[in-house]
Simulated assay, not measured.
Amino acid sequence: MDAIDEKIIAELTRNARISHAELASRVPLSRNAVRQRIERLERQGLIAGYTIVRAGEDADDVVSALVLVYRQDRMRGGDVLAALKLIPEVVICEILSGDFDIMVRLEATSLERVRDIWEDIAQMPGVRDTVTALSLSRVVSRPRGGQGRAA
């Protein structure tokens, strides 16, 4: 990755929907050259959809936690799901089989924010119990789809 790639990623980080023509006016390349570089960065996994993925940067700035939620009534517990959808730090919310019926993944800016969200979830009407686990480190992180291309 060279300085131009860095500039392209910086511009896309500011505005992921910028046109190739506008981006070309900000870096010393033609529109077609910008498009080709973006496609290469996508193939390399540095750009995934409208999300810029930069390995190693800001990884320590996010506190991740899993909250397992047990509702009082699984069949009529839609209010809990609706409330979870409104929390911006909830990045994944899945209904599970087994003892706990909802798994929530939080990504927050601080441990205090995780605690606040956990308290909010635990106090929601319809929530019987929760179990929370903090993520200590990330071993695997794949872009959505999970299917890599063979080199």
Rank of each mutant, 00 (worst) to 15 (best):
M1Y: 13
D2N: 15
A3S: 15
A3Y: 12
D5E: 13
D5T: 07
E6T: 12
E6Q: 12
E6L: 01
I8W: 01
A10I: 02
A10N: 10
E11A: 10
E11V: 04
L12R: 06
L12S: 07
L12H: 13
T13F: 08
T13M: 10
R14G: 05
N15C: 03
R17Q: 05
S19R: 07
H20N: 12
A21P: 04
E22D: 12
E22T: 08
S25N: 13
S25I: 03
P28I: 05
L29H: 14
L29M: 12
S30N: 08
S30D: 11
R31H: 07
N32T: 14
A33S: 15
V34L: 09
V34P: 01
V34I: 10
Q36A: 12
Q36K: 14
Q36M: 12
R37C: 06
R37D: 02
I38M: 11
I38N: 08
I38P: 10
I38Y: 08
E39D: 07
R40T: 07
R40W: 03
R40V: 04
L41A: 08
E42Y: 09
R43M: 01
Q44C: 01
Q44F: 09
L46C: 04
L46M: 12
L46W: 04
A48E: 12
Y50G: 13
Y50N: 13
T51G: 00
A55Y: 15
A59S: 01
D60E: 07
V62K: 14
V63H: 14
V63I: 11
S64N: 11
L66Y: 15
V67A: 04
Y70W: 15
Y70H: 10
R71S: 02
R74P: 02
M75R: 11
M75Y: 10
G77M: 01
D79F: 02
D79M: 02
L81R: 00
A82L: 04
A83S: 13
L84N: 00
K85S: 00
K85G: 00
L86K: 15
L86T: 11
L86R: 15
I87V: 15
I87L: 10
P88C: 10
E89V: 00
V90G: 00
V91W: 12
V91K: 15
I92E: 14
I92T: 11
I92P: 03
C93L: 11
C93S: 13
E94W: 13
E94L: 05
L96S: 09
S97R: 09
D99W: 15
D101Y: 13
M103E: 10
M103L: 12
E107P: 02
E107F: 14
A108E: 02
T109Y: 15
S110M: 03
S110L: 04
V114W: 07
V114Y: 10
D116E: 14
D116Q: 15
I117V: 13
W118F: 11
D120L: 05
I121T: 02
A122Q: 10
A122V: 03
M124K: 05
G126I: 03
V127E: 03
D129S: 07
T130I: 09
V131I: 11
V131M: 10
T132V: 05
T132R: 08
A133S: 10
A133Q: 06
L134A: 08
V139A: 06
V139S: 05
V140L: 11
P143M: 05
P143I: 02
R144D: 04
G146L: 14
Q147R: 12
Q147D: 02
Q147T: 09
G148K: 09
G148F: 09
R149M: 01
A150K: 08
A151H: 11
